[in-house]
């Protein structure tokens, strides 16, 4: 009979207990809460009725699909802007001939550690039509006519906030790719050089295939992060995610419903239903990645 290794249990216990208490239990309790409703101050089991309301009642469904659509756009901007720029920056930084590389690396990474509240507030000031430096800077180069109150217009607010978020987080893909690029052995690149593959061609033909798994990881991190996003929108536009819900994403929609806002009383049960839907969407996305993409990705033994 194998001996029980007590020390393993003892060392695992703190992490397991804390994680269970703050993550696993609340998660399952939220899923459970979504199946209940409060009728006359009593909590009753209602099955899937909350989801029927969420997807069937036009007042709820419109808000949900609007938030989901905005969330997809938010994600698209990150995938199309943040990650390519991050890869580009990493490729530039990994050039051995680049001077002040450490300075650039730090400067680009610093916004990542700033609080959302500070980022939201600072960018609101920068872009403010009254006090902001953006109109002044555009004016200095004769492009004042291009300035618009971007955060206040239905058409531009979400993209503006997505780009602010890109500015804040571009350091993360940059760092991950940078690390992956550094781990490529010199011999491989030298072997390529002998075969006549240098410069840009070396990046496309040798480095990119080798960092693809890292790009995959970054994509899934971006996906999870964006579909859980809430803070920046809340800090910049408030819980009503104006103008006209143009910046409303699943996170702000859930917050408004769960905790209530102004005269609207909170509804934990509908809020949980939205949180459950968010959980389902993220789970689906991660599964598609894990089983559909990651297993088919070619890996090279370095």
């Amino acid at each position: 009979m194998p001996r029980i290794r007590w020390h393993i249990l003892v060392f695992l216990a703190p992490a397991v207990l804390v994680y269970t208490a703050v993550m696993i239990f609340p998660l399952f309790n939220t899923l459970r809460l979504a199946l209940y409703d409060e009728i006359g101050q009593v909590r009753v089991f209602v099955g899937l009725a909350n989801f029927e309301t969420l997807f069937g009642d036009p007042l709820w469904a419109d808000a949900f699909w609007n938030a989901l659509g905005n969330n997809f756009w938010f994600f698209c901007v990150h995938m199309l802007v943040q990650n390519p720029i991050g890869i580009l920056l990493a490729a530039i930084l990994s050039q051995p001939r680049l001077r002040f590389a450490a300075l650039y690396r730090t400067a680009i990474f610093v916004p990542t550690i700033l609080s959302f509240v500070i980022v939201g507030f600072a960018w609101k000031l920068i872009l403010s039509p009254i006090w902001g430096i953006a109109p002044g800077m555009l004016d200095a180069v004769g492009l004042k006519s291009l300035f618009a109150p971007w955060l206040g217009q239905d058409g531009t607010a979400l993209t503006t906030l997505a780009l602010v978020s890109v500015w804040q987080f571009v350091g993360i893909p940059m760092m991950l790719i940078y690390a992956a690029l550094l781990s490529i052995p010199e011999e491989i690149l030298e072997a390529g050089e002998i075969d006549g593959i240098t410069g840009i061609a070396a990046f496309w033909k040798i480095k990119l295939p080798l960092i693809l798994p890292s790009i995959g990881i970054i994509s899934i991190l971006t996906f999870v992060g964006n579909f859980n996003a809430f803070d920046l929108i809340y800090a910049a536009q408030g819980a009503l995610a104006g103008p006209d819900f143009a910046t409303d994403i699943l996170g702000t929609f859930m917050y408004r419903t769960f905790f209530g806002f102004q005269l609207q009383l909170g509804d934990p049960h509908m809020g949980s239903a939205i949180a459950t839907a968010m959980f389902g969407i993220i789970l689906l996305g991660v599964c598609i990645y894990l089983f559909g993409i990651q297993t088919r990705m070619r890996r090279y033994q370095l």
């Binding site: 009254i130 006090w131 300035f147 618009a148 109150p149 971007w150 206040g152």
Partner: peptide, 12 residues
């Protein structure tokens, strides 16, 4: 209302 009132906040 002032220019860019769409992005003007209450403290503004």
């Amino acid at each position: 209302l002032g220019d860019g009132y769409e992005a003007q906040t209450y403290p503004d």
